[in-house]
Design a binder for these strands. Sequence first.
DNA 1: CGCACTAACGCTACAATGTTGCATTAACCA
DNA 2: TGGTTAATGCAACATTGTAGCGTTAGTGCG
Lengths: 150, 150
Amino acid sequence: MPHPDPATLIAARGGRVTRTRTAVLSVLFEAGRPISHDEVGEALAAQGIGHDRVTLYRTLDWLVGNDLAHKVAGPDRAWRFNAVRDEGHQHAHFQCDRCGKVFCLESLQPAIAATLPSGFRLGRAELTFHGLCPACPGTTLAPERNRVAP
Amino acid sequence: MPHPDPATLIAARGGRVTRTRTAVLSVLFEAGRPISHDEVGEALAAQGIGHDRVTLYRTLDWLVGNDLAHKVAGPDRAWRFNAVRDEGHQHAHFQCDRCGKVFCLESLQPAIAATLPSGFRLGRAELTFHGLCPACPGTTLAPERNRVAP
DNA sequence: CGCACTAACGCTACAATGTTGCATTAACCA
DNA sequence: TGGTTAATGCAACATTGTAGCGTTAGTGCG
Ligand SMILES: [Mn+2]
Ligand SMILES: [Mn+2]
Ligand SMILES: [Zn+2]
Ligand SMILES: [Zn+2]
C-alpha cells in the first residue's frame, strides 16, 4: 500500500498546504520509524528545502495536534515523530540500546494485565521494549526468550 | 520499616560520605516517589544546605551508578530520581497527566505477553501508565476499568 | 592528632532541545 | 486579483544537562 498524499491529508484537517508541511509529512511517511526533529531537518536539507528550526518544531507540533503524526520519547530526551497510519496508535515501541533508534511495533498486540492501586485513574498504558535492533550487532544480557513479565 | 541510613549505604559502596550525598539520598528516601533534579535542589535549599547545580547532577548520577537510586523519564524530558529499596527495580510506573508527578508502582506485578518481530533482541520492558493520580481532580476519557490491553 | 592523597566540590563555559514574541510572507478565498 | 490571516523566519530566551579545571575536604595512615 503506497503512502497517502500529504497535501490531501493536510487540507482535510483545514490547514494550509505549505511546502514545509507536505515535505515534513512526506519525510515521516518514508522514514518508516519515529525520527527526531534533527533527522527531519537533515532530510529537508537533502531535498534542498530551506527551513527554520522553529518552523520545523511548529510544523511537527501541528501534525501531532492534528493526528497526522504522533511523538514518542527517545532515549536522549528528544522526541521522535512518526506519521500516523492506523488510527488509535495503540502499539508498543522498541528502543535500541546501541544506536538509539526507536521503532513502532505496529503489528505487535501485547496483552497487559494489571490492577492499579486505588485512586489512580488510568488513561492509557505505554509499553516500551529495550534491547538491540535488527541492524545492531551484539547480544543482550537478558534472557533471549521473547516473552517477558517485568 | 524506617529508612536505611544514607551514610552507611554510601560508605558501603566505597564512596566518600559527604554532606551533599547523605542529604540527597535522605531527600530521595523521604520523597517516596521519583522527583526531579530541581525538586531535590529545593529540598536541599529548604534544609539550608548549599549546593551547586553540577554537583547535584553528579551526585544523582553517582547514586544511580551505585544502585542507590534509579532514574525514570518524566513527561517533560527531565529525569526523576528515586531511592532504590528492593533490588531489581522491576516494576511499572505511573505518570499523572495533570500534575506531572511520577510514581513507582512497586507492588504492582503486571503480566505482559508479547512476541517481538525477528531481529529484535530484548533487554528489558518498560511499562508506564498515564492518567490521573490520587491527588488530582477530574476524570479520564479512557474507560474507568483498571484492566488494559493497549 | 596532623598530614598526604585524591575524591568530590563549585565555578565557568558550553551543548542540546525546545519556546516566545513579533515582523514578514504567502496560502487561500471571495 | 487583491485582502485576510495562517504560517514562516528571525532573534532572544528557557530548561536540562555536560565538560574542564582549580579548590576543598573526606579518608587513611604515621
Ligand atoms: Mn508509534
Ligand atoms: Mn521506579
Ligand atoms: Zn540499533
Ligand atoms: Zn496528579
